[in-house]
Amino acid sequence: MKKWILALTMAGSVLALGACNQTSSEKVAESKAGNVTQEELYNTMKARYGEQALQQLVYEKVLSKKYKVTDAELNAKVNDLKEQLGTNFDATLAQYGYKNEADLKKTMKLGMLQEKAAMKDVKVTDKELKDYYASYQPDIKVRHILVKDEKTALDVKKQLDGGAKFEDVAKKSSTDTASAQNGGDLGTINNTNKDQYDADFIKAAYALKVNEISAPVKTQFGYHIIQVTEKKEKKSYNEMKKDIEYQVKSSKLTSDDINKAMQNELKAADVKVNDKDLKDALNAPTTPAQ
């Protein structure tokens, strides 16, 4: 996940208990072996996740007074993630413990608020912005078929040149089982995530025209047959400058920067924790969700 997704996802379950009467004996669950009261449930979840939940609640209240994340900004982040993950989006949410897209947005919004608080002190130069633009490559949507040897790769290429459907051959022949079940789809590759791929793979993919099928491309993983299904045009520097500035600043942010910014915001807001059980909650470092 992105480093700006900084909120802790387990906190959400505790937040829902915040309105509960902590001394209530109301039965949450009943059994012949005994009952579970609202108070027992609250205290158990407070002990396990209370510091995370309090940290999230305080951060949201403090940061929302000074910084704003619009629905348009939030939706753009989610859509960017959807493009990168393609058909793997829902599976990835489940992998990271998110119930659904709304749950992801809740976490992402807090992460974006934290990022804005920390980013205001980050400086960039014109040279850094222009260097980024010079190396920038536009988004491409890619699918591939991965096999073990060149002979098999040439056979796959022959099948495709003969009219076989790419997705059918991928499901049948690709050793990349994760993408094979989706017809070889790898989603969107862009400047943010391209470093996750082999350099020879990226070089070959960006050299392709839309819908062109590559010759076998050798990487450390085997031999790939690659097809680019979409490719965006590179905009002018002036059109991209605002986004470039954000990307360069974001790349400079560290966990220490986030933690320092959060402590400054808490101090400025004069935050005090009255619950002795949670007195150290805001001293815990903010760590990126994985």
Rank of each mutant, 00 (worst) to 15 (best):
L63M: 02
Y96H: 12
N100Y: 02
Q84H: 14
N88R: 14
K61E: 12
V62Q: 02
K68C: 12
V78S: 00
K99Y: 10
N79R: 12
G86T: 03
K99W: 12
E73I: 04
L74G: 04
N88K: 13
N75D: 12
A76E: 06
L74V: 07
K65Y: 00
A94E: 14
N79T: 14
Q84V: 11
K77G: 02
L63V: 02
L74Q: 05
S64D: 01
Q95S: 10
K105I: 06
N100W: 03
Q95E: 11
Q56L: 12
D80E: 09
N100G: 01
T70F: 10
L85E: 11
K65E: 03
A102S: 10
G97F: 15
T87I: 12
Y98G: 04
V62P: 01
K105H: 02
D71F: 13
K68L: 10
K65M: 01
L63A: 01
A91L: 13
E101H: 02
K105E: 04
L74A: 06
A76G: 06
N88A: 15
L81V: 06
S64C: 01
L85A: 11
K99Q: 09
V62S: 04
D90G: 07
Y98F: 13
N75T: 07
K61D: 14
N75F: 02
L81A: 05
